[in-house]
């Protein structure tokens, strides 16, 4: 089934821009990214959009469709009715470079601030032994494709540019949690999470979890346990020691 779809796409750059209307062919089985590509090929050759895999694996094509943060390549046209006007805008929490392409450098800056994996003393390559059940928690977080949709959604920074310097965002708080839960990592990131990455600013609204295309339970599985660990460290040294010693069993 082919029909003419109505699109309203934000076009412009850092100096400003506006929504532009397009009428474009839509075919069965297509996703929003297919439509953007058709627009490039037929009506707007310089329309800027990021994408790579077109299969939900690289996290490049993030934008907002009718105001909801989504991957353009995984948003099927069949979820809209044929007469609906579909509005596509760049992620709002970041400044725009051009059209649908935002400046996501904030995320790369934050990524550098989380202490890296710290290998255990005395274990050489090939000597790592870990049980599946113990790596699974961190593996869930490593499914992250760095689409930054959670970062775009979180109200702490969404309309609060001023919070960005103190807040790493759900993606990178989760990174700290991932390393905390790594069975063999030797560093402790709990103070940093609280003091440097702004864990305390998160008030567990779960909006980040809702938009995650990988279905990662960011709030329940990463942020809340991380808050508990920080609380344990701050107020109960015995719990802290126990946690560290019995990390595998916790």
């Amino acid at each position: 089934m082919t029909y003419k779809g109505h699109f309203r796409i934000w076009r412009g750059d850092e100096e400003g821009g506006s929504l532009e209307d397009f009428e474009v062919e839509v075919n069965e089985g297509e996703v929003v990214l297919d439509i953007i590509h058709r627009l490039q090929a037929t009506q707007a050759p310089d329309l800027a959009v990021r994408w790579n895999c077109k299969a939900g694996k690289c996290g490049s094509c993030s934008a907002e469709v009718n105001g909801r943060p989504r991957l353009l390549c995984m948003t099927r046209m069949s979820i809209f009715s044929a007469d609906e006007i579909i509005t596509v805008t760049p992620m709002r929490a970041f400044s725009v470079i051009k059209d649908l392409v935002p400046d996501v450098s904030y995320n790369y800056t934050k990524a550098r601030e989380v202490t890296s994996f710290t290998p255990p003393e005395g274990l050489g390559p090939g000597e790592y032994r870990m049980q599946q059940e113990d790596v699974e928690r961190s593996q869930e977080f490593r499914k992250c494709i760095e689409c930054f949709l959670c970062q775009d959604t979180c109200h702490v920074v969404r309309d609060h540019e001023e919070n960005k310097s103190a807040f790493a965002g759900p993606r990178f708080l989760m990174r700290a949690a991932e390393l905390e839960m790594h069975p063999l990592d030797a560093a402790d990131r709990r103070d940093d999470a609280q003091d440097e990455h702004g864990l305390g600013m998160c008030n567990i609204t779960k909006c980040c979890t809702e938009v995650c295309p990988e279905g990662i339970k960011i709030t329940d599985n990463a942020l809340i346990p991380m808050k508990e660990r920080v609380a344990g460290r701050r107020y109960d040294p015995v719990v802290w020691l126990g946690n560290k010693l019995f990390k595998r069993g916790s």
Binding site: P119, P125, Q132
Partner: peptide, 19 residues
């Protein structure tokens, strides 16, 4: 060796029963 080295960078591969 190259795969094992990745573990020292922090990679988490799926595991066998003996870890």
């Amino acid at each position: 060796d190259r795969v094992w080295e990745l573990e020292t960078y922090g990679a988490l591969f799926d595991r066998t029963g003996d870890g």
